[in-house]
Design a protein around this nucleic acid. Structure first.
Length: 596
RNA sequence: GGAGCGGUAGUUCAGUGGUUAGAAUGCCGGCCUGUCACGCCGGAGGUCGCGGGUUCAAAUCCCGUCCGCUCCGCCA
């Protein structure tokens, strides 16, 4: 049926007979001669039909876009002057001698060469969308990435072990997807949010080095980089410490970039403490392509009459920070500043104070700002000195609870970086380390794990853990950040039952709950659990970055829309009453399915 | 749960109260022997997302609703 891929027909095959199969990419009918660009996954080749080959010519006259053809012909050098340097196969064409229509095709819902087709249309006809070379390339790059990962990990002695998809709901963390049990009336499986506990159990099972490229499920609202089902590269190892894991993992990422993109990443990856990341960038996944940084100025405004600044400056949970934007005083209009004010409001900021710096040498006269009149000279000069403001700059301020300032200015920093064209080219990987163990939830009046409840604290014995201040306690967790996207995260785990009990206690999980929900883990920890730790990478996000895609939907073959539905399969869908009965389920309300 | 943007021809879009709703591209027909975004001529193609309201008159204004995208919350 086929002797070569279309995209492989080059001068090497001159004068040879070839058989090709593929789709009609374009047809150009000149009356006396018909050109068909035949496309398969490897590329395009031009096939020429001439009236001398009467039967083939007549068939070629009837074919249309996306018809599936098999053709036979001879590879010829193109006449001088008609070569197409745009095509890999552009030095030759195929003189078509026979053509068979393997299948006709309706006119496609969109042109494959269009680049800005609506995503709903693309998803509904995904099988057409995926024929586009850019989508083919992304899927192939993804396959190369997973293949390279497997090669690396296999070489390092990691063992690929599958873990269950039907498992148990977990109380902490994301909302679970539930699967009703037919055999256990009223009970439910949950799809795994990640194989976290299974991989720890595998360490206790003596597997020593585990990995899995595994689907994970979280029933939360979607984003450009979040899907209800997504893929992790999940890894765990025993008898190692965090430096060994980080060292091995960054070696893997370096090899990946070398092999797939021919890019050399730094060795080692830089590391930054969580606290420093928050101070300087307002976020735990700083994008180091952007040179702007937050600067703390609370100590300069503790005594000013301006309550907007003085309040947070004197509040232990408050923060007053400045963000200097070089050239921003000249570049940003009043309207642009208003837009940024609206932008930071999304993160809870009540306003966006600023000082335009026209000429710092002139003191107050050289400045322009609605808040200038509230600030004494000492504060103003202190701010200008500390931020290093120069003529033409603008300095923005955030003053509020630290979390609001960090969210707002952290996001503004990224936004301004893009708007002002300050984003550097290239790849900036970064380890973020020394995360807090816990964060306090005001609403629930309790602590939650920043990572997860199995993360080891930096203190090594349960007694000193219990004596510690949960606010100050640090964990042995680490995240990998690439260009402002968290691509992976992990930690050393608790491998000692007493410590695990103590952490549950700190989280307000009482003994009965702990037994009921995590009894198996607590037991396993008492049967000889080795020290262990690991990491999980978000494969979709990593491939998105590596391929330059704007959303992880573009690196998944069949993604869901923002409301979690699949326009192609039309999932989710109602099921028959009999199916519900078998599952011991009655709907609370008759739901209008719209499918009747 | 909330905010913003969008929904008009197959597709991408224009059309801010008043003629028969347009353009590009695609599609169909005709012509064309070297094009490759082929060209030229002609043609077909519309539930202006859906429902209600205001008005002499609604794609256009108002209310509701559905769908898509981006973001906040959420996502250990």
């Amino acid at each position: 049926m086929r002797s070569h891929y279309c995209g492989e027909v080059t001068e090497d095959l001159l004068d040879e007979q070839v058989e090709l199969s593929g789709w009609v990419h374009r047809r150009r009918d000149h009356g006396g001669v018909i050109f068909i660009d035949l496309r398969d996954r490897e590329g395009l080749i031009q096939v020429v039909f001439d009236p001398d080959e009467s039967a083939a010519f007549q068939t070629a006259d009837t074919v249309r876009s996306e018809y599936v053809l098999q053709i036979r012909g001879r590879v010829r050098r193109r006449p001088a002057g008609t070569e197409n340097p745009e095509l890999k196969t552009g030095q030759v064409d195929v003189y078509g001698q026979a053509i068979e229509v393997l299948n006709e095709a309706k006119t496609p819902p969109f042109q494959l060469t269009d680049t800005d087709v609506g995503e709903d249309v693309r998803l509904r006809h995904r099988y057409v969308d995926l024929r586009r070379p850019v989508m083919q390339q992304r899927l192939r790059d993804r396959a190369r990435v997973t293949s390279a990962m497997r090669r690396f990990l296999d070489d390092q002695g990691f063992i690929d072990v599958e873990t269950p998809m039907l498992t148990r709901a977990t109380p902490e963390g994301a909302r679970d997807f539930l699967v009703p049990s037919r055999l256990h009336a009223g009970s439910f499986y949950a799809l795994p949010q990640s194989p976290q506990l299974f991989k720890q159990l595998l360490m206790m099972s003596g597997i020593d080095r585990y990995y899995q490229i595994v689907r994970c499920f979280r029933d939360e609202d979607l984003r450009a980089d979040r899907q209800p089902e997504f893929t992790q590269l999940d890894i765990e190892a025993s008898f190692v410490d965090e430096d060994q894991i980080m060292g091995l993992m960054e070696a893997m990422i370096r090899q990946l970039f070398r092999q797939i993109l021919d890019v050399e990443l730094p060795d080692p990856f830089p590391r930054m403490r969580y606290a420093e990341a928050m101070d300087r960038f307002g976020i735990d996944r700083p994008d180091r392509r952007i040179p702007l940084e937050l600067v703390e100025v609370a100590d300069l405004v503790t005594d000013v009459d301006f309550k907007v600044f003085a309040g947070p400056a004197n509040d232990p949970k408050g923060r007053v920070a400045a963000l200097r934007v070089p050239g921003g005083g000249e570049a940003l209009s009043r309207g642009a500043i208003d837009d940024y004010t609206d932008f930071v409001a999304r993160y809870g900021a009540k306003g966006l104070a600023y000082i335009k710096v026209n000429d710092p040498a002139q003191g107050r006269e050289g400045l322009q700002s609605p808040i200038l009149k509230f600030l004494p000279d000492a504060a103003v000069t202190g701010i200008l000195e500390r931020t290093g403001a120069e003529a033409g700059d603008i300095v923005f301020f955030g003053a509020d609870k630290a979390s609001v300032v960090n969210d707002a200015l952290g996001a503004l920093r990224v936004r301004l970086g893009h708007d002002m064209g300050l984003v550097a080219d290239g790849w900036y990987p970064l380890w973020v380390v020394e995360f807090p163990m816990f964060e306090y939830d005001e609403q629930d009046q309790r602590y939650y794990s920043l990572h997860h409840p199995f993360t080891a604290p930096q203190v090594s014995d349960a007694a000193s853990f219990r004596n510690g201040d949960p606010e100050q306690m640090l964990s042995r967790a680490y995240d990998v950040v690439l260009n402002g996207t968290e691509i992976g995260g992990g930690s050393m785990r608790i491998h000692n039952a007493a410590m695990q009990w103590a952490v549950f206690e700190a989280l307000g999980i009482d003994a009965e709950q702990a037994r009921e929900q995590f009894g198996f883990l607590l037991d396993a920890l008492e049967y000889g659990a080795p020290p262990h730790g690991g990491i999980a990478f978000g494969l979709d996000r990593l491939v998105m970055l590596m391929t330059g895609a704007q959303s992880i939907r573009d690196v998944m073959a069949f993604p869901k829309t923002q409301n979690g539905s699949d326009p192609l399969m039309e999932a989710p869908a109602p099921v028959a009453d009999t199916a519900l009965q078998e599952l011991h389920i009655r709907l609370r309300r008759t739901v209008n399915s719209g499918s009747e």
